[in-house]
């Protein structure tokens, strides 16, 4: 009798423990994870800019994001000509100018690397620079700066053009064809909603249902809810699987969103 009671108790305990675990992983955990990931991704976007934008950007709150004309600058990329190089043995201070302004970039030297960056980054060449924008003593600087010489100078043109596009998008303007003729603000958005493809609808449905169905969202349910043929859903899901957006649940009939 005593043995039975102990066993029963242990079983109960074990069961209870796994249950809580499942609950956390299945619903709240997954959901929060994906949303915080999305935010982090947005914050970490590499924004193409001109040096003038960097120099004129301001922080709304101390240590916060830099803002210039609605564009958030966290990680930035720009292109410019090296105008001055100062060798501090462990790092190079490069003065880079792109016709809109100039900025000093500190490039740390890697001892283990065989190349000598000083000779690869002479004065007068175009370079592509990326880094995290920071301010120190009232002066803008880049953390973790990478500097790479430009071989194909089309990059100079394309970079400036993409900086313009990024800027215009942030102002709520779309750059279609000859662009400047007042394009209504929200046209692209509504277009996108109406013409949502079946694949996108299926993915959204799976994504929404994933937290509550840890065994996989059944194909039949997807087909019923979205009013689609089961075969079509299978086809689309196979495609989504290939793209790495969904994966099989416990068996081939159910899918989970990544």
């Amino acid at each position: 009798m005593a043995t039975y009671a102990t066993n029963g108790y242990q079983d109960y305990n074990g069961g209870g423990f796994t249950h809580t675990n499942n609950y956390n992983a299945g619903s709240a955990g997954d959901f929060q994870d994906s949303s915080s990931q999305n935010k982090a991704q947005q914050r970490n976007t590499l924004t193409p800019v001109t040096i003038k934008q960097i120099n004129e950007s301001t922080q709304l709150v101390p240590d916060g994001e830099f803002i210039i004309n609605n564009v958030e600058l966290a990680f930035v990329s720009f292109i410019g000509v090296i105008r001055n190089v100062v060798d501090n043995t462990s790092s190079l201070t490069l003065t880079v100018e792109d016709g809109t302004g100039s900025i000093d970039v500190r490039k740390w030297l890697d001892d283990s690397a065989n190349e000598s960056p000083a000779s690869q980054l002479p004065v007068g060449i175009y370079v592509y620079v990326t880094g995290a924008l920071k301010e120190f003593n009232g002066k803008k600087n880049l953390q973790h700066a990478t500097v790479r010489p430009i071989i194909d100078h089309n990059e100079v043109l394309y970079h400036h053009l993409s900086a313009i596009v990024t800027h215009l998008h942030a102002q709520g303007l779309s750059t279609n064809n000859n662009g400047q003729n007042s394009n209504p603000l929200f046209v692209p958005n509504t277009d996108g909603n109406e013409s949502k493809s079946n694949v996108e609808r299926i993915y959204e449905f799976i994504h929404d249902q994933t937290p509550s169905m840890p065994e996989g969202v059944p194909i039949q349910l997807i087909a019923q809810t979205l009013n689609l043929m089961v075969e079509d859903v299978q086809l689309h899901c196979a495609k989504l699987t290939e793209d790495g957006k969904v994966y099989h649940g416990y068996d081939d009939n159910g899918f989970l969103a990544v």
């Binding site: 003038k52 053009l161 313009i164 800027h167 215009l168």
Partner: peptide
């Protein structure tokens, strides 16, 4: 050609 055109239309980014 486009860069000359648009950089002068978006002069706030350039000068």
């Amino acid at each position: 050609i486009a860069l000359v055109k648009y950089s002068n239309k978006c002069s706030e980014l350039f000068y």
